[in-house]
Structures are given as C-alpha cells and as structure tokens.
Design a protein around this nucleic acid. Structure first.
Lengths: 139, 139
DNA sequence: CCTATATTCTACTAAATATATAGGATATCT
DNA sequence: AGATATCCTATATATTTAGTAGAATATAGG
C-alpha cells in the first residue's frame, strides 16, 4: 500500500507550479533544487502530466513549466492516477477477469470499498488547498 | 497503491478458517486446493498470523489451523497489517525523519489523511461479515 | 545567425521488492 | 512405527522502482 516516488514528486512539483501560478514558466532545474529531486528523473515524472493536460511547457531559454489548469480544478487523485495509473488496491477490482473467482469472492467487495474511499479522499484534496497551506507555512 | 498477494491470500485463508470456526483444525493443504494458492507460499503467509495471535496450529496428523480469536473481533486491517506491516502510503507518514522536509511538507498531511481513511475502512470490516457474505454466496 | 538554455525522447542500469520453490526438521495422531 | 502436517531456513526468479545517461529539438536573446 505504498505510493511511488512518482506520485510524491509530481505532487510536490505541481505545488511549486501552483505557488508561481500566473507568474510565467518555472524551470525543472529550480524545482529540482528546491525539492531535492533528480532533474533527470523529474523530467520523466512530468511527462505524463503534460500528456494528461495538467501542465504546459515552453522549450528553450527562459522556458519551463506552467499549470495548464487552475489549481482549484486539479485534485491529488488526478495527479496520482496520471503518473501512477488507476488506483486499485488489487488488480481484480478494475479487471474482474484477473482472477477466476471474482464472482464468488467476498474479499473483492472489500477491496472495491477500499478503492472507493481512497479515491474519495484524494479526489477531495485540491492543489489549490495544498498551495494555500504551503503559503501559510512559508509565511 | 497495491496490496501484496500476502494480504489477499491471508484474507482468503482466514475466511476459510472462519467458515469452519468451531469445527476443528483446517489443513493448509485444503485451503491451498480450495483457494488455489501455493501450499508452500501459504505456509509463509500464515506464519505472522500465528505470531500475531490470530491463528493457532496443531501439528501432526489431523492437525491444521484454527482461528485463535472470534471472527467478529478480527478486522481486515489487522490481517493486512499483520502480514504486510503497518499501512502507510508514504514512509514519512510513520517516520517523519524519513524525509528532511517533513515539517514543512503539505503533501505529508495529505498522505496522513489518506492513511487514516484506509485504516478506517479496513478496520470497519470484520472477518465475521466476510464469512457471513461468503455463506450467502455458497448457499 | 549563434549560443546558451531548457525541454524532449530513448535507452540503459542498479537495487529493492514480490512471489514464489525447495528441502529437511519437528511434532502429533493412529 | 509410520503417515501426516506444520515449522524453519535458504534459494531463485520476475517485476517494479528509482534513477542515470546522452543526444535531439526548440526557443530567447544578443
């Protein structure tokens, strides 16, 4: 039941973008330094977020990343599922055919319930809120 | 965000024990056959459940496993945490020192919230309920 | 146009984790 | 005594995770 570093890094990177929302592009190099994340790895983490339409990029000098959507419309759930794939504590949750006994399996129902509360919790946390809290901490 | 097979196998094995609760020991060989789980692997999965006091064993001929506690006092959370260790979506949740920025990290608060809903959901599901549902399905 | 800069794309790698398999030791019932 | 079932330790394989590396592409500014 662990999130990978991709989810953690993506969340922290998008918070940095949220802090600078409306102020032009932010370089990964800066995020990498501030958040202490390998630049090269961060590049890979950001890739699906661009494909998913959460960030836009500007190449070349003075380029960087900006949020493609308002922070209040982006949830943690979207970030996590974008970089990590659909959340399902067990494979049979999304693919009943994964296990031949899915039809008669009572644990599967429990795993489905678990998936739902996880998605609900993450879906109710917006980037906006996280950025606001971060501003409070930074003072 | 995946549970390992240990959690899945342990849950299904304990349901089998719950179905036979009060009827004497159940052999892993039988559970292995019914649930289609490798016997040798199942032995390893059951080990922490014995140490944790969830099952008792009887060695030798006519031996096997029995629940050490009433099914209504065992939750999915206990089973999962027993075989898989404490549930925490991110290491810093239980060990703030894991990451130097824990004190100023807003995502950590989110991961703590996530941990809480996961534990709450699993903690509210008892083995009793699962066994009852299974009996309904089996007819 | 040229250069520095930043992203983009592809490939590769080391380490950790998950998922078992194997074999013998130990205990117990008949 | 023999069959049976758990107990314990070691080993193996596959997958995933978490990164590294390097060249290609695009852009701003001089």
């Amino acid at each position: 039941m662990k999130l990978s570093t991709k989810s953690r890094y993506a969340s922290r990177a998008l918070i940095e973008l949220g802090l600078k929302y409306g102020e032009g592009p932010v370089k990964l190099k800066d995020i990498s330094a501030i958040q202490d994340i390998s630049l090269k790895y961060l590049e890979q983490v950001m890739f699906p977020l661009r494909i998913g339409g959460y960030v836009k990029t500007l190449k070349g000098s003075q380029g960087g990343y900006i949020l493609a959507r308002h922070p209040n419309s982006i949830t943690l759930l979207e970030i996590v599922e974008c970089v990590e794939g659909p959340i399902a504590p067990v494979d049979c949750v999304d693919r009943p055919g994964f296990c031949g006994r899915s039809e008669q399996c009572v644990t599967r129902d429990a795993w489905i319930g678990l998936k739902n509360v996880i998605r609900s919790e993450l879906g109710n946390t917006t980037l906006d809120e996280l950025v606001a809290k971060q501003r409070q901490i930074d003072g």
